[in-house]
Design a protein around this nucleic acid. Structure first.
Lengths: 337, 337
DNA sequence: CTGTTAGCGCTTTCAG
DNA sequence: CTGAAAGCGCTAACAG
């Protein structure tokens, strides 16, 4: 038979409520009593029943990870971080795919929260780019944590200074003598595409280089879009000597386009990406890119969320560090012809 | 204020229990009553409280997906299928990473189930290869569903005839004139490695080709292990004209090794893999491989699990179809020298 | 076919 | 600092 709180109370010679207090780290229990209760809990191998706890306490000990079709690599890293943080706090995480473009998204999420009594949400890009969605959740008092939101002000979660990261990356390229640098943009829905594009422009400006719109083409974060964009840039009458793609998958596409045009990387063309996904190490030559601490981002975002759940007003927006990964896909600019 | 079953009952002019019966699809309610109740439910936008339901009904409406470090692509496909099936049945799925090599794994899982009152588990490889674990769960009466278990007999879940799939794949290679065919094995922990190896041997036997142990090298499903294995095979005094790697990541490694040795694929060397992961389409040339319906496998495994939960004895082992993906990485064997 | 009565195991009052 | 009682919202068991 299952051990109940009542049994623990009887065995420890206290009331149920005292056991409950100890288990929930509530104040107002003498140290010695607390110790005795804990011993009994361990001795009896007592585990509180989550359903009963939820019903009485009006919370579920569950958070949901909301996502819409991101890269599996990225998402799994986030998941690992989130689950890790949840485990430490005896929370569970449920996966919740949603459709970013669904006009009824906010309603869907709201009824989801109501129906499942979720204690909080973790939002991943591009969901974190929808001001309307975030405002709605705030309005309804649903605790949530954002990963890389487009507008971090006044929200809780994690960000990364992608603008600055791209500036540094581009500064390296410029330092290698590149003057005509192309850019493959990310999916227009993603705030990240904007930041990375802005970083690209800032870097050019800081170096006193002219911004040439012809050198910027749209992509959508996929390998295929990178391939297509690569061809467009490489077939330009005056082609760039370096290309910065807004993520690694597209950079891989660019490298493939270069190969098909008979260009050698990095001798004829330097290529760099963003994200440091596994593919960046499997390409030949290995890709210069920027590493985000994705797993830690999931972890920290979750900890901020759990803080908020426990104590509204406790969570904040945490800035995470990035790290440039200089590898063999970038090199000195070819000599002027 | 939240709508309760009591409110619905009052509004519909029936008892709580009748509402409960309707909501749980229990028999013994007149059609007209059922319809009236449903209308009221919709009108009031009533959602049963999962915690109360769990407490009273003694189940959680939660299943867990257990995994140990599989490929993100594979796992996310599974997740998508599982979540999809769960959604239809108003179940939630929690992610539960575990350590396959932990000697206390069975205990961990057992206490996990007890502590969270999980209704069932979905196990992914290599967890499904541990007879001891599966037996233990059976013994404890925990419902679970297996994805690609090493020994499918008497379990519920999904399998795929990997042996036969590999035979077909190899038969194509042999049909192209290849006689010296290498194999890069998968991680020794995975049943899949055995099946694929066995398929390789069967195909050779059926074609009357001699099995040469020198042409088989160990890998562990990673790109790097495929790269290393590729070098070993290609540096053989009498190297193979085709290589079958037990998964796509390793096949990618082999292709890279070929490139570094100056061999052209498929002119000098044919390469094929298994899994049809995205990388297989991003390589140049595109990789010949075998597609598993991974998402459907997650879906079907979950439906079998939910069936078992509702009615012990309802779930079964479902055989899923595979599909050969012939692409450009395989071609006729080079002429004998 | 439908309703009544007890709990499920915990936390929250509110008293001591 | 500790305890007794009163539910949380639902379903199970038994009546009708």
């Amino acid at each position: 038979m299952r051990v109940r709180i009542e049994d623990v109370a009887a065995a420890a010679g206290v009331s149920m409520k005292t056991v409950s207090r100890v288990l929930n780290h509530e104040p107002g229990v003498r140290q010695s009593t607390r110790a005795r209760v804990m011993e009994t809990v361990v001795a009896l191998d007592y585990r509180p029943d989550p359903s009963a706890r939820s019903l009485a306490g009006n919370r579920s000990y569950l958070v949901a990870l909301l996502y819409d079709n991101p890269s599996p690599n990225y998402l799994m890293e986030i998941v690992t971080g989130v689950v890790d943080a949840c485990e430490q706090h005896h929370y569970g995480m449920v996966m919740q795919p949603v459709a970013f473009h669904d006009p009824g998204l906010a309603d869907t999420i709201e009824s989801l929260v109501n129906a499942s009594r979720l204690d909080g949400l973790i939002l991943t890009p591009p969901l974190t780019d929808s001001q309307a969605l975030l405002d709605r959740l705030d309005e309804r008092g649903v605790p949530f944590s954002c990963i890389s939101p487009r507008h971090p002000q006044g929200r809780i979660g994690v960000t990364l200074d992608e603008h600055e990261a791209v500036c540094e990356l581009l500064a390296q390229l410029i330092g290698l003598g590149h003057r005509r640098i192309g850019h493959v943009r990310g999916h227009p829905d993603h705030g990240a595409s904007e930041w990375r594009m802005a970083g690209y422009r800032s870097a050019l400006r800081r170096a006193g280089l002219r911004y040439d719109p012809a050198l910027v083409v749209d992509g959508e974060f996929s390998f295929d879009s990178g391939l297509a964009a690569g061809f467009r840039l490489l077939d330009l009458p005056s082609r760039p000597t370096a290309i910065f793609a807004a993520n690694d998958d597209m950079a891989a596409g660019v490298m493939r386009a270069a190969a098909e045009r008979g260009l050698r990387v990095p001798d004829d063309l330097s290529v760099c990406g963003f994200d440091n996904t596994p593919i960046s190490q499997q390409m030949f030559p290995r890709l210069t890119t920027v590493q985000q601490p994705t797993r830690d981002m999931g972890q920290v975002a979750t900890m901020q969320l759990l803080g908020t759940i426990r104590d509204r007003g406790a969570g904040r927006m945490v800035k995470m560090p990035y790290a440039l990964q200089g590898r063999q896909s970038t090199g000195p600019a070819p000599a002027e012809k």
